Structure formats: structure tokens, C-alpha cells
Simulated scan of single mutants.
Amino acid sequence: MATLSGLYPFLLKLDADGGYQGPAFQDASGRVCRSVTVAIVKRPDQAVGFEVRPERWIVERTTGWFNRCRRLAEDWECRTSKALAFLRLASICILLRKLCQQSE
């Protein structure tokens, strides 16, 4: 969280999964990132089966795009810096593909 607030000082809201609703995470995020509001995105009580949540769909869609990259399908990297480099490379490929589709 400290790295997140240092890299993105303009960040005001953070959507988190229901697994982060405990007091330990709330206290830690309050100490580290005072300006960031943490919103827990929970599933509605009346939902039956899978239901798409608009806040979570962004993350699920991006994970799906990354899973199309064969190098990221398995965890082969020994170093975090190398894994981050391949994640950035996959992001560049995804963005280039989107840009090329729009220009046609």
C-alpha cells in the first residue's frame, strides 16, 4: 500500500474484494494511505450464482486479457523484476492490438 500511494499520489479510491473487509486491513490501509478511501465491493445478498459487478468487471477483464499471453499463463519467472517486465510487455501488446483495431 505504501508503494501504491507513492506511485499514484492522485489515487483517491481503492475498490477491494470482500476478503479485505477485516479490521486488520482497514487499520493498515488507514495508517499507510490516509488520503485513499477503501471501498469493499461485496456481492449482493439476493444474488443467486454468478453476477457481474461493474467495479470488479474491470479487473476480471484485464486478467482475462493477460491470460491470453502464453508467457503469463504459467509462473516461470524466478525474479519479480522479470515477471514485471513480461507483464509490461503483455500490456504493451494488448494496447497496440487495441490501437490497431481502432485505426482500421
Rank of each mutant, 00 (worst) to 15 (best):
A2N: 11
T3Q: 15
L4G: 03
Y8A: 06
Y8R: 06
P9L: 02
P9K: 02
F10P: 02
F10K: 13
L12M: 11
L12P: 00
K13Y: 13
K13N: 06
A16W: 01
A16M: 10
G18A: 12
G19K: 10
G19I: 02
Q21T: 11
G22L: 00
P23L: 05
P23T: 10
A24C: 05
F25G: 00
Q26R: 11
Q26T: 07
G30E: 08
G30L: 07
G30D: 05
R31C: 09
V32H: 01
V36N: 08
V36T: 13
T37G: 15
V38E: 01
A39L: 12
V41I: 14
D45N: 12
D45M: 09
G49S: 03
F50T: 02
E51A: 14
E51I: 15
V52H: 14
V52D: 14
P54G: 06
P54Q: 09
W57L: 12
I58E: 06
E60A: 10
R61Q: 00
T62P: 04
T62E: 10
T62F: 11
T63N: 15
W65R: 10
W65K: 11
W65I: 04
W65Q: 13
F66N: 03
F66M: 14
N67P: 04
N67R: 13
R71T: 08
L72D: 01
L72I: 09
D75V: 10
W76T: 08
W76I: 05
R79N: 00
T80S: 03
S81G: 03
S81C: 04
K82Y: 05
A83W: 01
F86Y: 13
L87A: 09
L87K: 02
A90R: 00
S91I: 04
S91R: 04
I92G: 00
C93P: 00
L96Q: 01
R97T: 04
L99R: 00
C100N: 01
Q101M: 05
Q102V: 05
S103E: 09
E104H: 13
E104Y: 06
